[in-house]
């Protein structure tokens, strides 16, 4: 018999994987992140209930993913390469550039904010909870991030239209 959080993890495993993959861009690494996130979620002293559960859960997956990337980066640095830090100079968004790539190049927590807001369709308030930021800070960073990706006017448009959600 699964307990409440175990059940939630099982039911949301695809969501976890998708989000983890959004960070790692790699199947095996994403699976590692999922596994770690489940472990974290289940060994936390008290998991919130009701509406608080969703942002809390997202927050755990995000921090598991970011910790993973940090470790991967350390490893890459130790091994002498920085192939994984494939960050081109910012600012010039070629018109045909993939929006996904632009999101990937954003610094944290901007990338997370964009991913949770647009790809996972979380409310701003929930994004704020998941990232442990104030709602106002989250909004500010969201718009700053959109500005950075100014080539993607439609994203900005969409953000404006849904800003009150």
């Amino acid at each position: 018999m699964l307990n409440r959080i175990e059940k939630y993890c099982v039911e949301n495993r695809t969501v976890m994987y998708r989000l983890a993959y959004g960070y790692t861009k790699n199947r095996d690494d994403a699976l590692d992140v999922v596994s770690d996130a489940v472990l974290r979620a289940l060994t936390t002293k008290s998991a919130p209930r009701g509406e608080e559960l969703k942002p809390w859960f997202y927050g755990i997956v995000v921090s598991a993913a970011l910790d993973f990337l940090r470790k991967r980066k350390d490893r890459a640095n130790i091994e002498g390469g920085d192939a994984l830090m494939n960050i081109p100079a910012s600012g010039d968004n070629a018109p045909d550039e993939d929006l996904m790539e632009a999101v990937n190049r954003l610094p944290e927590p901007d990338r997370t904010i964009i991913m949770l807001r647009f790809f996972e369709d979380l409310k701003i308030e929930d994004v704020a909870k998941a990232t442990n930021l104030r709602v106002s800070t989250t909004k500010t960073r969201l718009y700053a991030a959109l500005k950075k990706m100014r080539g993607f006017s439609q994203l900005a448009e969409y953000a404006k239209n849904t800003a009150t959600m």
Partner: peptide, 10 residues
Amino acid sequence: RVRGAIKKAR
């Protein structure tokens, strides 16, 4: 992996 992690967490 989810199953494994749940088991480990238990």
